[in-house]
């Protein structure tokens, strides 16, 4: 089952004119946002994007842009009030790792 979060918020952009069809974005996206259309990548499930940034970082053509960040309310809150220890300290439950097993 694919969970989806809020619609129409993802900052993902793809410039298909730069795409060389290497397929890397399809490989790295954990949410199956892209699919191939005539040998170029296209965004077919934008609302599933969690803005992890994997596609943009691994696109050798620089065809993808996304404002990557961590979708964690606690981190956003700490950040807003300029507090330290925003994430990944001993008390943070943010362990996708535990979820994903590695």
């Amino acid at each position: 089952m694919k969970f989806k979060y809020l619609p129409n918020v993802a900052t993902l952009e793809l410039d298909q004119s730069k795409c060389n069809g290497c397929g890397m974005c399809l490989v790295v996206c954990p949410q199956e946002v892209f699919s191939f259309n005539e040998k170029v990548s296209s965004i077919t499930d934008r609302d599933a994007c969690l803005e992890c940034g994997a596609c943009a970082r691994n696109c050798p053509q620089g065809a993808i842009r996304v404002r990557a960040g961590v979708g964690c309310a606690y981190a956003v809150l700490m950040d807003k009030f300029n507090l330290k220890g925003s994430c990944c300290n001993d008390s943070c439950g943010c362990s996708l790792e535990d979820i994903a097993d590695r």
Binding site: F3, L6, V9, P30, E51, G69, G71, A73, V76, C94
Partner: peptide, 24 residues
């Protein structure tokens, strides 16, 4: 519930910011 966004595998930063703006 809002805090659980940090533990999920599918919430985006833009979504969390939007949600918090209303909910908080």
């Amino acid at each position: 519930g809002m805090n659980f966004t940090g533990s999920t595998t599918y919430t985006s930063l833009s979504g969390v910011v939007k949600e918090m703006g209303v909910a908080l």
